[in-house]
Computed example of a mutant assay.
Amino acid sequence: MATNTGPGTLRPGGRTARVREAVLRAAGDALAEHGFTGLDLGDIARRADVGRTTVYRRWGTVTAVVADLLTDMAEQSLPRTETGSLLGDLRANARLVQRTLVDPRQGALFKAVIAAATSDPDTRRSLARFYRARLDEWSPCVTQAIERGELPADTDPAEVIRAVSAPLYYRLLATDEPLDASVADRAAEAAAAAARAGAYVRPAEAKPE
């Protein structure tokens, strides 16, 4: 049975922190190796060298472990880079995403989580929270570009950041084409050019009051 405190809401120290770290590392390894359908709390406990009772009591379900893993990944992500220009910032974002997706463990992990999110509502909500955190982290680079006069005033920051990542995830999930730094740079350049041209200006009815 899961505890009343939701996964990822505690900031424990000492042994509790070490147990959480070990369990999430084990869950990530298992997810990358076997996918979501292959996850089992008993196997995760074994990999983490943690008692089954501890894992069942702390998390309770596989989806709760995945939710906590995504929370931890969002917390551990590198902070936003500030270069002083829109293109520089978007290129830094794109290269960070690219490096993550081509990493043997991280790329496989994201594939598994995304696949699970298509059929499991809890995983879908957890994945949405993860990406919302990343959008919130990087959207200020668009806001700053608006303030510098690089972009139209009503540009939607989240849409610009999504436009950078979308081609990279498409290559990861739907093609066998290379996903290297040059692809990341092109994605950033295309998003920056489209943003400057007004492609991501909010429609009048969507503008905040």
Rank of each mutant, 00 (worst) to 15 (best):
Thr175Pro: 06
Asp29Ser: 14
Arg99Phe: 03
Gly149Pro: 03
Tyr131Cys: 06
Thr81Ala: 12
Gly6Tyr: 14
Leu78Asn: 08
Asp68Phe: 01
Asp49Val: 11
Ala145Ser: 15
Ala184Gly: 06
Tyr200Ile: 03
Ala191Ile: 07
Glu150Gly: 10
Lys111Arg: 15
Pro104Gln: 05
Thr100Cys: 13
Phe110Cys: 04
Leu70Met: 15
Val62Phe: 06
Gln144Val: 00
Pro12Arg: 14
Ala2Gly: 00
Arg95Gln: 15
Ala17Cys: 14
Arg47Glu: 09
Glu150Asn: 11
Thr63Ile: 00
Arg202Lys: 13
Met1Asn: 15
Ala112Arg: 00
Arg99Trp: 00
Ser182Ile: 11
Phe110Tyr: 08
Tyr170Cys: 06
Val97Ala: 00
Arg125His: 11
Gly14Ile: 13
Arg124His: 07
Arg148Thr: 08
Val50Asp: 07
Val102Tyr: 01
Thr61His: 10
Leu78Tyr: 12
Ser182Met: 08
Pro208Tyr: 00
Ala116Trp: 03
Pro203Ala: 00
Arg47Pro: 05
Met73Gln: 12
Ala117Lys: 10
Glu33Met: 11
Thr5Cys: 10
Ala2Phe: 01
Pro167Trp: 02
Ala30Val: 08
Asp136Cys: 08
Arg132Asn: 14
Ala128Asn: 14
Phe130Lys: 05
Glu33Lys: 03
Ala26Ile: 09
Ala45Tyr: 02
Thr53Pro: 03
Asp49Gly: 14
Leu69Trp: 00
Asp154Glu: 14
Ala166Leu: 10
Gly28Ser: 04
Val183Pro: 01
Val142Ala: 00
Gln144Phe: 05
Thr37Arg: 13
Gln144Cys: 04
Ala67Thr: 15
Arg129Val: 01
Asn93Pro: 05
Ala67Arg: 02
Gly149Trp: 11
Glu159Phe: 10
Phe36Leu: 02
Glu177Val: 08
Pro140Tyr: 03
Leu135Ala: 10
Phe110Leu: 11
Ala163His: 06
Arg25Glu: 15
Val62Leu: 05
His34Met: 04
Arg186Ser: 08
Ala94Cys: 13
Tyr170Phe: 05
Leu127Ala: 04
Met1Val: 15
Ala108Lys: 01
Pro104Phe: 09
Val62Met: 01
Ala32Thr: 08
Val201Ala: 04
Pro208Asp: 10
Ala32Ser: 15
Arg58His: 13
Ala181Arg: 11
Gln98Cys: 02
Arg99Thr: 08
Gly60Arg: 02
Ala145Ile: 13
Val66Ser: 03
Ala187Asn: 03
Leu86Met: 06
Arg18Met: 15
Glu177Leu: 13
Gly149Lys: 11
Glu75Cys: 12
Gln98Val: 04
Ala32Pro: 06
Glu147Phe: 04
Leu78Ala: 14
Ala190Lys: 09
Pro104Val: 01
Ser165Thr: 13
Asp103Gln: 10
Gly28Pro: 07
Thr37Pro: 02
Leu96Thr: 07
Ile161Pro: 06
Leu172Ser: 01
Ala133Glu: 02
Arg125Cys: 07
Thr54Ala: 15
Thr5His: 13
Ser165Ile: 02
Leu151Phe: 11
Val183Leu: 01
Arg125Asp: 09
Leu168Met: 07
Val23Gly: 04
Leu109Phe: 03
Ala92Trp: 11
Asp154Pro: 07
Asp185Ile: 08
Leu69His: 07
Arg186Phe: 05
Ala163Phe: 00
Ser182Pro: 03
Ala188Val: 12
Gly28Val: 09
Val23Arg: 06
Gly6Arg: 13
Lys207Arg: 15
Ala128Val: 10
Ala197Tyr: 00
Tyr56Met: 09
Ile44His: 09
Ala17Pro: 03
